[in-house]
Design a protein around this nucleic acid. Structure first.
Lengths: 337, 337
DNA sequence: CCTCCGCCTGTTAGCGTTACCGCTAGGGGG
DNA sequence: CCCCCTAGCGGTAACGCTAACAGGCGGAGG
């Protein structure tokens, strides 16, 4: 039921109906223990009867807090960012926060900073930045210092806390797995330059090969899409020495699988293929894909809780790593011969 | 540069620095043409010098508008909802709106209404509801009437405008395509009951078969996942009569492809398989998947503009359909024999 | 010369909430 | 018996902005 005159009820209407002052109504809503149980009950009854909802703008104007968190993220159509965002939102909701988004189509320092500005203009209490790109790192060094911020998958030497999956460790595991199957070396189809995840995976892969004294093939660069995986896979299929490929994400691995098959090279009998991410479909590729599982949900939750700490004034500036997990399926096998 | 005392500058600080009244500053920001060019320039200079940003809460308190739109959506991890959300956000940004999200993990009337409540408590100016589920339809009939709302992919007989892809037309096209290849009939792996998209596709498929006087096989029900497609595909592979399957989305089609291959039935020589959605990977499945392209981006943009009209007071209550497009690849071919 | 009109700017009064301080009633200690 | 303390509640003043009206000033028209 609405207030007498038809407009939404305000705090004063509740106060009048309950026979108390406006201040008491406010207390009932924000600090219920400080008001006598009987009074509280009367107020709550009035709240229900009038269908009263506190005006956020008025509350924010005086408290300075909006209860809204901002997430600026690269293309939320991608599986990783979408999943991270989803779990951030879940965690935020459970803690009583709302989340506002700023998706970036192109990723560079300016677009990222513009996203932050947009959210700031909206008076968010804090931001989480999902911008796993070299070009955005510089922007992270110049964030407004009074705005609590946490980054996901960011580079080093930045003044904000970071939550991320340990890309390097994942790449190390999958590369070691391939070497342990007897392959002389492992080729690598990487993500685009400037992507931190792509570079982390390259480092892990290269490190294992160098440490084992194996030849390090040239890195091939895709753009995360199946299309680019297919294109690069056609080139790879011409390499006579090729027996194992580590592809930097599952979508590109799908393209590589198709290219190899079209060239008549069997997986895993002739060539082993491994991916990264463990998207839900990869278990149903042909053959089912060996890959590295990233727990994007955990990253999202972690980022949110770090932001919460940050907003509470904690001065954490470290990075928290989530461990990836090797998932062995049927696309990798013993080296031929 | 901040205001003298260290706190963020407010409108009054700008007014003092520019030597005008607060009202003039407000006008420069909201209705620049109504103030003399020279005065305007002085004010803008002061704005820049103080790094002044209008306080949204104060503005909202007096205007009643927040400049924030809400999107309540089923699991934004799924390709369709994620893409729709992405384009809604893009369109909203271009029009000067921010977007706040409420993702639903389980979809039913209560969770949907709770999502709307959460956004309403946040004082959004309007909401877009992506809840393509029977159970949510009833909730759409009881939305607070004063809240401008638009639904995406909703059912019939609801009092809010709807933007959606014409599911039935897509199913009709793909089923006709399969019949035209000489198949006696077409099997169907559908999405979960209560999903409107799933049911629309069933209707289109069934309609074509009945109209052509073909037998109508029992509908198989999956849950959109590749896993369920695989499970149902194993059953299908046992059907001796099977020569054509229309699968209600591409992920399930991937599972069906694998199940058929494992059972030794070749695609498309023995069995034709078609999907729905045209996710970016489906062109790289083995074989490349014939499917129906849904333009989720167009749906998102459309929904946003309908909401804009709605907020402007327009009384549209119709539904706007986006046409899907058949994409023929290599997973469908002439009937065997 | 006066009046009227349009352009530009200023003054006043809120918008709905919470922070801060103050008041009252009742109870326990000296 | 008085004093002080606490629990419970109320009054007032912001928070930062814009709607609505008011006024000054110059030029056009009578």
């Amino acid at each position: 039921m609405k207030s007498r005159n038809g407009r939404p009820a305000v705090l004063m209407d509740v106060a009048v109906l309950a026979g108390v002052s406006a201040m008491t109504v406010s207390r009932v809503l924000n600090d219920p223990d400080r008001v006598r149980a009987e009074t509280r009950a009367r107020v709550l009854a009035a709240v229900r009867e009038l269908d009263y909802r506190p005006n956020q703008a008025a509350r924010q104007l005086v408290t300075g807090r909006s209860g809204v968190l901002g997430v600026v993220s690269i293309d939320t159509t991608l599986y990783g960012p979408a999943t991270t965002l989803y779990y951030i939102e879940q965690a935020a909701r459970n803690a009583g926060y709302n989340v506002s988004i700023a998706s970036l189509s192109s990723l560079n320092r300016r677009s990222m900073e513009e996203g932050v500005q947009r959210l700031r203009a909206q008076a968010v209490d804090g931001v989480i930045i999902v911008a796993p790109h070299e070009s955005a790192t510089e922007g992270l060094r110049h964030l407004p210092p009074e705005l609590p911020a946490v980054a996901v998958d960011a580079g080093d030497d930045i003044p904000v806390p970071v939550a991320k999956v340990d890309q390097r460790a994942g790449a190390v595991r999958v590369t070691r797995h391939l070497l342990s199957l007897g392959h002389r070396t492992v080729w690598h189809v990487a993500g685009p330059p400037d992507w931190l995840d792509a570079n982390g995976r390259i480092e892990g892969w290269r490190g294992v090969l160098e440490q084992a004294g194996r030849p390090v093939p040239d890195v091939l660069r895709g753009d995360w899409s199946s299309r680019s995986g297919y294109r690069l896979g056609r080139g790879l299929a011409q390499e006579p020495e090729l027996t194992a490929v580590f592809v930097a994400n599952d979508q590109m691995a799908l393209g590589v699988l198709r290219a190899l098959r079209e060239a008549g090279r069997r997986v895993p009998e002739d060539v082993s293929v491994a991916g990264f991410d463990d998207i839900p479909e990869s278990a149903y590729y042909w053959p089912p894909l060996t890959t590295v599982r990233q727990d994007f949900g955990e990253v999202g939750r972690l980022a949110f809780h770090m932001l919460l700490d940050r907003m509470a004034g904690a001065d954490l500036d470290g990075r928290r790593l989530v461990e990836p997990e090797l998932v062995v399926r049927e696309s990798t096998g013993a080296a031929p011969g």
